[in-house]
Design a protein around this nucleic acid. Structure first.
Lengths: 245, 245
DNA sequence: ATAAAGTATCACGTAACGTTAGAGTCAACA
DNA sequence: TGTTGACTCTAACGTTACGTGATACTTTAT
């Protein structure tokens, strides 16, 4: 399919497709001899994913990261999309009921607090970030665990090997400065690994690091690999998060 | 209330409030001696309206026009908001069912056409424009009539006087060129008048003009004010629409 | 075969803020 | 009562996600 066909099908502009090509978000692999972009069926599916993420308020840069990640799992993404769309609908319902209340309020039928007037509006920045923050505490761990529990024995072994490998590596370099290249490379591995499990924003990642120190259960587990590793990781994770946002 | 209180309450940034002040969308009437912005309760309500319109995808410029219009009716706006939010929820439901289908499709359980893959995504530009387009045919007229029927006798008289005045003026200048200043000024009056009734986009306005000629019932009515007025209005309306978008 | 419609690549424009930067303000605490 | 620390101001440049031409080539329709 050529640009305009695609654009009309999904209700976006040709310029938008050009733009997605420019920034490397959706580059059609095929072109005619004359240089016309040709979109395959699979590229249409990717476009669908992109639009889902967009509807959920993700910036294009993030979308690119997500879908071009080798660990990107279409099925998982679809499930997440569904979940977030449902949440969005809940918010919409709240807004509708807020309007109904406001209409009554305008008629002088009921009282309304300032807080009530804005129910459903508190998208504090980004719904995804909100999700991420919810995952800070235990959710992320729970979800990771659930994922691990669903693995076959072989998969689990591979997983644990990789996990331990990263930790051992970090333990080995824990006396370096958290800003050093070697530390940042090690922590990047950790970040990438985590993002193959759950979905961590940089803020969430930073918060997670803080938790390694604040929550003694974590500290204890982590420091088994080497005394002071938790503190080192927290610092390196903070540096990593600040540098990459 | 001071900026940050407001910002935190509604979940937007302080910068956003500053911005709304800069562009004249929401200027707090009160300030402390030291120049701190102070938001009153009524300004909070205006902010609520602004955020509703924003959620519906209106650009700030349009929002400013709407809420600062002397004919802006809070009650009517709330009703419209409600309607559009419900529509948006319907679209969300479609997207959710599209996802469900896609998940099944991914499992190889069902077939899916390209069109199906994008159901719920066809926000061809702006949901508001869609509404406007729906109103082209008769809806606008119906709604205007409904509004007129709800008027008191005095109001209706004023309304008819203004209406007739505009038409008589247009009839008087119908031999000028549709591009002339005098024609464009006359047609602007008509556009403004209509927008005090319903809500016409420029495209809708242009389409309405075309209808004046296509639909003989309209032509007949309009030409009572002067032979050829319908055609003149259609042309002038098209020019006006094209120039102002 | 010639216009109309589609496509391509620059490249500048725009909307709605984000993000410093530098400086004044205010309540609270030592 | 001096000094933080949280908040506020204005000013101005940066950013995201395209919009909007301008100019030139290609394909489709008549």
């Amino acid at each position: 399919m050529k640009v305009k066909e695609v654009a009309d099908l999904v209700g976006i502009s040709v310029r938008t497709l050009h733009h997605y090509d420019e920034i490397g978000l959706l580059i059609p692999k095929n072109t005619t001899e004359s240089g016309y972009r040709l979109y395959s069926n699979s590229e249409l599916e990717t476009l669908q994913q992109i639009l889902f993420f967009k509807e959920l308020g993700f910036p294009l840069k993030k979308i690119k990261e997500i879908i071009s990640s080798p660990s990107f799992d279409r099925g998982e993404a679809l499930a997440l999309h569904r979940k977030m769309l449902v949440e969005k609908r809940i918010r919409l319902d709240k807004m509708i009921s807020t309007i109904d209340k406001t209409i009554q309020h305008a008629k002088g039928e009921i009282e309304m607090s300032n807080n009530e007037k804005f129910e459903g509006f508190d998208f504090s920045h980004n719904p995804y970030e909100q999700e991420a923050r919810e995952r800070w505490g235990d959710k992320a761990v729970d979800e990771s665990n659930a994922k691990i529990n669903n693995m076959s024995k072989g998969e689990r072994k591979d997983f644990e090997d990789e996990f331990n490998g990263i930790y051992r590596n970090l333990a080995a370099i824990r006396h370096e400065s958290p800003e050093s290249d070697v530390a940042q490379e090690g922590i990047k591995e950790w970040y990438d690994f985590l993002n193959r499990m759950g979905n961590y924003s940089l803020d969430a990642f930073k918060g997670l690091g803080q938790m390694y120190v604040d929550d003694k259960r974590f500290t204890k587990n982590i420091d088994q690999f080497g005394e002071g590793l938790a503190v080192f990781m927290r610092d390196a994770m903070a540096v990593y998060a600040d540098r990459n946002k």
